[in-house]
């Protein structure tokens, strides 16, 4: 069984139809990159996976939890689906009044009711992994943008999710800080985490992603292995988009 299965996702904001039938699957341990122009619906797809956005129609299944949005899901159903994933935000959204360590153990201890010592031990391992083990007691505001985002990643991983969702994790960063965050994400891919990542870092997607979905106007217009979609795009819209993005650099 594939880890993620999305079928017939529709979503409108008012009169604006943002998603018009999005389907995709992702196998366990793979990295899926969502590419597409601004406003194409990438964030909406991602947020539909953890019900921060409630689609109008469609089915989202992660592992053994499946929610059909054709009828309004109950809060319990949504919570169950949400618990399957963790999210890394573009603006990190760390809790500013909590230290790095507290940010990371908040979910495990409070929501998942794991013993605090265990959560702290796990958090330390994770922080080591993202390379900021010396900032345990710092507040987010005392960290650089790259460090903040790496704490954001550690906070997501601490939940031991089935899937990690990233929404443009490097877009808010100064260019010189992008590398350190991408390096961490690359490591995660190597460790077998299942990930869905919205990004404009085409080169990164090409190297790290197993599959690339190219979204435009609320539908996936091209999909396939990253080498193929990025290296040899078939659709005119994909080609235009990539040309524009790669020209910028």
């Amino acid at each position: 069984m594939t880890r993620i299965e999305v079928t017939g996702l529709y979503k409108a904001f008012g009169l604006q139809q943002v998603l018009r039938g999005v389907d995709f699957e992702a196998a366990q341990g793979t990295c899926t990159a969502l590419l597409g122009p601004s406003g194409s619906g990438k964030t909406t797809v991602l947020r539909s996976l953890n019900t921060l956005e409630i689609p109008d129609q469609g089915v989202v299944r992660i592992e053994d939890v499946s929610v059909d949005f054709t009828t309004m899901p109950s809060r319990k159903e949504r919570d169950r689906l949400r618990a399957q994933s963790a999210m890394v935000f573009q603006a990190h959204n760390l809790f500013p009044h909590r230290t790095v360590l507290e940010n990371i153990i908040e979910g495990p201890v409070i929501a998942q009711k794991r013993p605090r010592e265990e959560a702290v031990a796990d958090a330390k391992v994770l922080l080591e992994q993202v390379g900021i083990s010396d900032k345990l007691d710092a507040y987010p505001a005392q960290l650089s943008g790259g460090q903040q985002q790496r704490v954001g990643i550690a906070r997501a991983l601490a939940l031991k999710p089935r899937v990690v969702l990233f929404d443009e994790p490097t877009s808010a960063l100064d260019p010189e800080l992008v590398g350190e965050v991408l390096a961490v994400i690359r490591d995660l891919a190597g460790q077998g985490w299942t990930m869905v990542i919205v990004t404009h870092e085409v080169r990164f997607a090409q190297q790290v992603a197993d599959q690339v979905l190219f979204l435009d106007g609320g539908v996936i217009v091209e999909r396939g292995p990253s080498a193929q979609v990025i290296g040899d795009p078939q659709e005119a819209r994909t080609r235009q988009f990539l040309a524009r993005i790669l020209d910028q650099v």
Binding site: M87, F89, E106, A111, Q112
Partner: peptide, 15 residues
């Protein structure tokens, strides 16, 4: 984003 982050780490609205 704070509400959303709290929700994604699994906190209930009251929490």
């Amino acid at each position: 984003g704070q509400f959303e982050a709290a929700a994604t780490v699994g906190l209930s609205p009251a929490q």
